[in-house]
Amino acid sequence: MGAFSKIFGTPEARADLADARNNLADVSSGITEETDDYYAANQRVIDAEQAVKDSRRR
């Protein structure tokens, strides 16, 4: 793991986080209630954030 990956997380982890956030946006668009799909997508974002440094989570 290079210095960049140590600071910002691996490219795969950053891509997974972006994908998880996009999935959450797709699932949550237009809903008025929190569904099981919403909770699953939100948990996927939380799990993906664990592999990315705090400074890159925004």
Results as ranks from 00 to 15, higher is better:
I31D: 05
A3M: 10
T10M: 06
R58G: 15
R21L: 11
F8R: 11
R21H: 07
Y39G: 01
I7Y: 10
G2L: 08
V27Y: 07
D47R: 04
A18I: 13
D37C: 05
N42E: 09
V27Q: 08
A40R: 07
D37E: 15
R44M: 05
K6P: 02
N42Q: 10
Q43M: 03
N42D: 08
D19N: 13
D37H: 09
L24C: 02
S5P: 04
P11N: 07
S29K: 14
A3C: 08
A40M: 05
V27W: 06
D16T: 14
N42P: 01
A51D: 09
A48V: 03
K6A: 11
I46C: 00
T10S: 15
F4I: 09
R14F: 06
V27A: 05
I7F: 09
A3T: 13
D37A: 15
F8E: 08
Q50F: 02
D26G: 10
E34P: 02
A41N: 08
S29D: 15
G30D: 03
T35R: 02
Q43A: 08
L24A: 07
A3W: 09
S5F: 07
T35P: 00
F8K: 10
D47T: 07
A51I: 07
E49Y: 00
V45A: 00
V45F: 00
E34L: 08
G9E: 04
Q43K: 10
